[in-house]
């Protein structure tokens, strides 16, 4: 299982969304890394990518709203990180649309995405939890 209890930040709504986000990432990775031919799995990759990409936006909006509510001091920096991440997903989507059978491209994006998301949730997002807890 990709989600781990230690990723929790102690804010119920954010933890619930993180869990859902990791579940969607899990579905995406399962499709990406299945043994099927790329021609066969391209449509499924696109579907799970869209599904995950949409949820990223919902989650980031909600997380930023909580930060504004608590006057989180690193709000702007955190928001910019979210924006860069959304931009990377969009750029990958465009590359993928143009070359749907390029398995290396999908593998490269997926590996980076996995590390990035864990780093963000296990690192930067934990600080939100600590701040909310103390305020």
């Amino acid at each position: 299982m990709i989600w781990k209890e230690r990723y929790k930040i102690g804010v119920e709504e954010v933890d619930r969304q993180h869990k859902e986000l990791f579940n969607r990432l899990n579905d995406f990775l399962q499709v990406v890394r299945s043994e099927e031919d790329m021609e066969k799995k391209a449509a499924e990759i696109e579907k799970t990518l869209n599904f995950m990409g949409e949820y990223v936006v919902v989650h980031f909006d909600s997380e930023e709203e909580i930060q504004r509510e608590y006057n989180y001091p690193d709000y702007e920096e955190h928001r910019q990180t979210h924006e860069r991440f959304k931009q990377e997903i969009m750029e990958f989507k465009q590359e993928f649309e143009a070359d749907k059978c390029n398995e290396e491209l999908v593998m490269e994006f997926s590996g980076k995405l996995l590390t990035w998301l864990i780093h963000h949730v296990a690192g930067a997002d934990q600080k939100i939890g600590e701040y909310v807890d103390n305020n």
């Binding site: 990709i2 990775l29 990406v32 890394r33 593998m107 994006f109 590996g111 980076k112 996995l114 590390t115």
Partner: peptide, 17 residues
Amino acid sequence: MSGMEMKEIDTFVTSAM
């Protein structure tokens, strides 16, 4: 990190690292 079995160093593994 992925909760999935990795059998060899492929593009997914090197990209994550």
